[in-house]
Write a protein that binds this DNA or RNA. Structure first.
Lengths: 147, 147
DNA sequence: ATACTTGCAAATGATTTGCCAGTGT
DNA sequence: ACACTGGCAAATCATTTGCAAGTAT
């Protein structure tokens, strides 16, 4: 479901939405970023790789695309939300709250943890929208780095 | 470590800090709330139970008390941060991202999940500062409620 | 007396909303 | 043509910062 820009564009049209230039740029930006990007990053044109756009429109388009199920966003700690293609963001994240280094994990890598949480709480959790937070091995070992 | 207001006051003094009226009120508010409260809740006097205070001072005092290790705060989804006594907040939380219902868990209840995550990622995670997010049994069953 | 604190105003950062002009279909 | 969008300014929300006046020790 939406493996490239044209497919995403088609999905947008299929829902009766229009395809304006700013909207197309947002879509392209998402396909151009291997990692989740902030709205500001997209508005800034990914640092020159794409035309800049209005930040408000970027937010509004991300919202629309998220409703369509094409986009999703993650919150790393207190940082601004980061957006990514839903098709690509089947990953879960763990962030270090000391050095803010983060690791992306394939979808079912934390199956065991999820099952343990389900057993204990009844909740079906995911670490996609709000990632796991903790200490990375280095910071836990005592020597914090970065940030 | 700080089981009642006077002990907390003593801890503050022991670190060479002054004990002003606003600061004492923040401490009392934290002891008076069984659940985590927002800065605004404290400034509002917990709805009449305590004198109101200036929101800025509340934030500043919470910050100081957090540095002393007396206080800690949790982020439930996008909601404002909630503050609680560190001695009481050895709990971890699971929130439902649909109905926002949450459950507090005793400190070691998620031991297994934490261990699984440590095995898979090397990270030592805790669900105290940023809680677990997922779907509660009811919402997962299809019938969302509240909010 | 002298730092530490307060309280009010103003700044900040992320995101949203209002509103009217612009434009895709 | 007409509803959907864009862009810019202004609003919001939670939190922080500046700074002069107040006060605990």
């Amino acid at each position: 479901m939406a493996a490239d820009v044209e497919e995403a564009v088609a999905a947008v049209r299929a829902r009766g939405l229009r395809l304006s230039t700013p909207r197309r740029i947002v879509i392209e930006a998402l396909f151009a970023s291997p990692d989740p990007v902030s709205a500001e990053g997209i508005a800034g044109g990914l640092g020159g790789r794409l035309p800049k756009s209005d930040l408000t429109s970027v937010y509004r388009n991300l919202e629309v695309l998220e409703e369509l199920g094409l986009v999703r966003h993650v919150h790393f700690g207190h940082a601004p939300g980061l957006y990514a293609l839903a098709s690509r963001d089947e990953q879960e994240y763990v962030v270090c709250e000391r050095c803010s280094r983060h690791v992306a994990l394939p979808a079912d890598r934390l199956k065991r943890a999820r099952a343990a949480i389900r057993d204990e709480t009844g909740y079906e959790v995911r670490f996609t929208h709000f990632p796991l937070v903790g200490m990375c091995p280095d910071c836990a070992a005592g020597d914090g780095e970065r940030e």
